[in-house]
Design a protein around this nucleic acid. Structure first.
Lengths: 219, 219
DNA sequence: AGCGGTCCGTGACACGTCGTCAACTTTCCG
DNA sequence: CGGAAAGTTGACGACGTGTCACGGACCGCT
């Protein structure tokens, strides 16, 4: 569609040859279809056939790109984890105090997930009867990174010498569980959630911010 | 096997008739098989056929007792939740202080899961690549109960007026995530884990117990 | 341009699981 | 004892799975 280029050099620059091009295109085609179908049906109800049907491709082609439903789901999740992991790490490494370390972690995480429609839609659909969380290699690496950063912070005297493994687990547990609650609430408010989690980790229950009185619950 | 009872009354007392008897027996047969197969294969890899094959029954019979793999899994999980829920509730209602409320919750929960082989085996197997948690109706009711108890504790002046929903989520998140870590560690120590979680909720990171120096991590 | 080699999309295939159902067996009760 | 009700059985059609021989399009070389 650009300049027709009389017939000159079959440049190996921008387009890497038709082969590579359709390969990348097909991969994106399948991934997009998968994201959509997962969001619509949930992970459990989705079949490889559903995904490939949402695509102009044949069923066999799927297996040239992914081994199974599990693998493509992992690929999708990994993309998400890959997007947030460096941001989290950077903020933690720049942290000058426990406060900064904790609050930036929660703030960034909650902001991210409250913007990430697709992924949380998928989780929700399974929520009818059961909910599940998939920890991909990338996610697990992110957890390990958090633990390392905690250990570094301890070595630097920023944190008291606590059990880094348990502390990591506690942060992860609270982050995911509260993220779920954010998604369930009418007003998604990542900032308030981050304030809550941060106060909890810094000073415990007694220093938590007082709840808005509207949280009546029943009726 | 007891006294042969010449031919007297076909008593409707201890044994409720052969019909009811085999019905209950078959149900237990299927449930036992399911527990075993789930623990061996994990939830995802298990099929209804696998379960029924571990049984002397025919495939159609399964569906007289459970609608699907999901439903029987829920039934199993519900049994577990049913066993621990009243204990947790009782301890919380007897709590005279924030300390008691929090510490008894974590202690009871961690002790329970560290004894519950079957259930955590199942979770583990999926852990190769992905992990998941199923929240059954009974489990969800347990969460709601925790939130109600928090609200009661706030009303009674035991807790400051915090966001009960978020606090519940935080407790649940930490409880499950740390339970997972306990299972992964060589020395299952529910008491230490409970002490950690309790200190976190009562006073925040700075009041956490100091870790045993052996937690080297690498090597 | 033309030509072999390679890559990869294609859809049919063999196999297994799913949930159902008509036929059969066992229990119940008058 | 005999008929009705309850429950078990295994075969069945529909569907999903992963594979593979085929064939057409692309690549690089002459």
């Amino acid at each position: 569609m650009d300049t027709p280029l009389p017939k000159a050099a079959p440049v190996r620059t921008a387009s890497l040859g038709k082969r590579e091009q359709t390969k990348a295109q097909n991969r994106e085609l399948i991934l997009d279809a998968a994201r959509q179908v997962f969001a619509e049906l949930g992970f459990g109800a989705t079949t490889v056939r559903d995904i490939i049907r949402a695509t102009p491709l044949a069923s066999g082609t799927f297996y040239n790109y992914f081994k199974s439903k599990e693998e493509i789901y992992q690929a999708i999740q990994d993309d998400v984890a890959l997007a947030i992991r460096p941001r989290l790490r950077e903020e933690r490494l720049n942290a000058k105090s426990v406060e900064e370390f904790i609050s930036s972690t929660f703030r960034t995480f909650f902001e991210f997930v409250s913007e990430d429609r697709v992924n949380f839609q998928t989780m929700r659909h399974s929520a009818d009867t059961s909910r599940f969380r998939v920890d991909t290699p990338e996610t697990i690496a992110g957890f390990a990174e958090l633990r390392e950063d905690i250990e570094k912070a301890i070595a630097a005297g920023l944190f008291p010498p606590v059990d880094a493994d348990y502390l990591m687990a506690a942060i992860v547990g609270v982050a995911f569980e509260i993220a779920e609650r954010i998604a369930h609430r009418p007003d998604h408010d990542p900032a308030a959630a981050a304030a809550f989690a941060t106060a909890l980790f810094l000073g415990g229950i007694r220093t938590l911010p007082v709840a808005a009185p509207l949280t009546a619950g029943t009726a």
